[in-house]
Design a protein around this nucleic acid. Structure first.
Lengths: 245, 245
DNA sequence: TAGATTTTGTCACAGACATTGACATAGCCA
DNA sequence: TGGCTATGTCAATGTCTGTGACAAAATCTA
């Protein structure tokens, strides 16, 4: 664990303004952005800091990305690539969808600051397009067709991105704030007046026990159950009860 | 439609540094924040701009809110209040949950920039606590108890906030970006190679037709179906088929 | 009513950020 | 060789969040 507050990385210039061609690349910049975001959160990430961390000028990154937003889209695609890296479509389309969603969540939790910046964006870049194709495959296997298939895919995709992005945004909050937000359930909601908020009062002891994992698996199970109920074709394995039609 | 680029609102000082007590209030500040966010998006909203719009000093707001984050929490609660304003619990608990989710979405769509800043935060303020109690009521009516009820409530609440927040974040993107993001489905994904992305290709004509409304109603229906399937007690009306147990 | 205290607004300013335009040099192509 | 372009540097602009010193108004206390 090297505390790299003021690192002295290899310099882009040899001496007196000379420069090394190919010292910065899009790939290296994205990797370093991720490192910075992981280490210092959203506030630890800025174009000047990024340039300095790369051993270059604070404005050097602009030679490779038109704007910070442009860079964020590249980071978003990098995250999707990491999440779907060794995703192998299962024989059962339901398992494929569940697995993909869990993978996305795992990656977003590993890089919460990066995810919070980029989760709701459409990158239109290779990794995203690949992922869309894999998930659409599963949706088509479920027997959805044409417009229906398109709607179902968008529903599942946007759901996963939104939920995992929201979790990441909370994890990425500057430290005092995240703690305060989470403490809500053990302080404010725990200490509520019985007369005023009777229903909260009823479960006041259980509310603080709920974990992110509980919530995720619970909402995912509901979505999948609703999906199976509507799917024209059931899955191949016996674990996911489908519609009664 | 008054173009208020440089408005000249009532001034806080009468003359020569004198000042009017009670000129700024938390309520007025939140209202003006909302106006600013609605009119100019996230980029049109800053502490200095807010102060000037209120006819006061660029730093005046700090006398009422400790930080921008503090103000954002107040805005978040204001949005929840607006969303749940005249929510009347239906006799059918399923209808109550659906109605609350649709209301949240309507409010977030009306104030996308404000929502994008605040949707994933826990405000711990009055409107939020009230809303939690109403929704927990519905969950308890469904027959969930104790820890289960807590998990189900958190699942539904976080789902609604995350999805609607994500939609709002997209709507709140600075104009050229939102258009670009949306154009993905009519450009990039429409023009995909059949051999490389066969499943996208299959629904390439339908993908651009999918609207936000379609996606929202579709994912909401799945969640509700999954919920009804797991609810120990069915709803009172006949419109929401429950579990087969 | 007079004096002390608190509240609320103003002002000057520190430190950071995104982005731009002018400049310089290194590698490439003719 | 001579020029072009890609890439890095530098100086600078206008903006942002937040602080601390100050001043006047409202309120509280004697």
């Amino acid at each position: 664990m090297t505390m790299d507050t003021t690192p002295t990385p290899p310099q882009a210039r040899g001496r007196r303004g000379g420069l090394r061609r190919g010292f910065l690349t899009a790939g290296r910049i994205v990797e370093e952005s991720l490192r910075l975001l992981d280490a210092g959160g959203v506030t630890g990430f800025s174009m000047p800091k990024l340039g300095r961390a790369l051993g270059a000028d604070p404005t050097a990154v602009y030679r490779h990305f038109a704007s910070k937003d442009d860079l964020i889209l590249a980071i978003a695609d990098r995250l999707i690539a990491e999440a779907m890296e060794d995703l192998k479509p299962d024989a059962c389309w339901v398992e494929t969808l569940i697995d993909a969603t869990r993978r996305l969540r795992r990656t977003y939790r590993a890089h919460p600051a990066a995810a919070s910046l980029s989760s709701y964006r459409t990158t239109q870049r290779p990794a995203e397009i690949r992922a869309v194709d894999v998930l659409l495959d599963a949706v088509l296997q479920a027997g959805f067709e044409g417009f229906q298939a398109a709607v179902v895919y968008r529903s599942l995709g946007d759901f996963a991105l939104a939920w995992c992005g929201g979790e990441a945004a909370l994890l990425a909050l500057p430290e005092p704030l995240e703690t305060a937000d989470r403490a809500a359930w053990t302080r404010t909601y725990r200490a509520v007046e019985r007369a005023e908020y009777p229903h909260i009062w009823q479960v006041r002891d259980e509310l603080p026990l709920v974990t992110d994992d509980d919530i995720f698996e619970s909402i995912l199970a509901m979505v999948i159950a609703g999906l199976c109920q509507r799917a024209p074709r059931p899955c191949i394995c016996s674990r996911h009860p489908g519609s009664v039609r």
